[in-house]
């Protein structure tokens, strides 16, 4: 009789134990269970990345988009613009030399800070963590960014500048 009485502890009571020994023990059990839960959540997150890249790939930019007139951007200057698609993506257009133009996504590949072209250094700079990119290729020169800047292809037509999606494996 006594045993039954002591074994049947209601849940609310076992959730809030009075004795220290019991309390620390239960919290470690729960900690281990939460670690198991976290482990499952991380696996689901990883699965989410697979599903996203399989079924929802990033949409390619379609067609040519007008940016500005050639005379608006002198040599060594940068021009900011954005293209509205499923989301608004900011870009920069750089006039490197006469008839040499480049267009890159403005979001740094590290933590998405806005990058800018520094003509005095001839580099694209991310001011947040001092990341530097090559203005001709978009490759990372220095700092924490893990990937090159995404690039657009620049098309010049009758004093006007257009951009379109860069074809893969095409050397500019």
């Amino acid at each position: 009789m006594k045993d039954e009485k002591y074994e049947k502890i209601p849940n609310w009571k076992s959730d809030f134990p009075i004795e220290r020994k019991e309390a620390t023990h239960v919290s470690r059990r729960e900690f281990a269970k939460y670690l198991g839960l976290l482990s499952g959540a991380l696996a689901i997150g990883n699965g989410g990345i697979v599903i996203k890249s399989l079924y929802f790939p990033a949409e390619e930019l379609k067609g040519e988009h007008y940016v500005c007139n050639q005379s608006d951007v002198p040599v060594g200057e940068m021009f900011q613009f954005s293209i509205e698609g499923s989301e608004i993506i900011p870009y920069i257009l750089i006039h490197l030399e006469e008839n040499e133009w480049r267009a890159y996504e403005q979001k740094c590949t590290h933590l998405a800070c806005a990058v800018r072209y520094r003509a005095d250094l001839d580099k694209i700079e991310c001011p947040c963590h001092k990341g530097y990119f090559n203005p001709r290729t978009g490759d990372v020169l220095q700092g924490p960014p893990p990937r090159p800047l995404p690039q657009l292809e620049v098309v010049l037509k009758e004093n006007q500048v257009f951009v379109k999606a860069k074809e893969p494996n095409k050397i500019v």
């Binding site: 006594k2 002591y6 134990p17 004795e19 059990r29």
Partner: peptide, 11 residues
């Protein structure tokens, strides 16, 4: 989990 001492004592 370790059962409470209260439960074990009468046993």
């Amino acid at each position: 989990p370790i059962r409470s001492e209260k439960g074990k004592a009468p046993e």
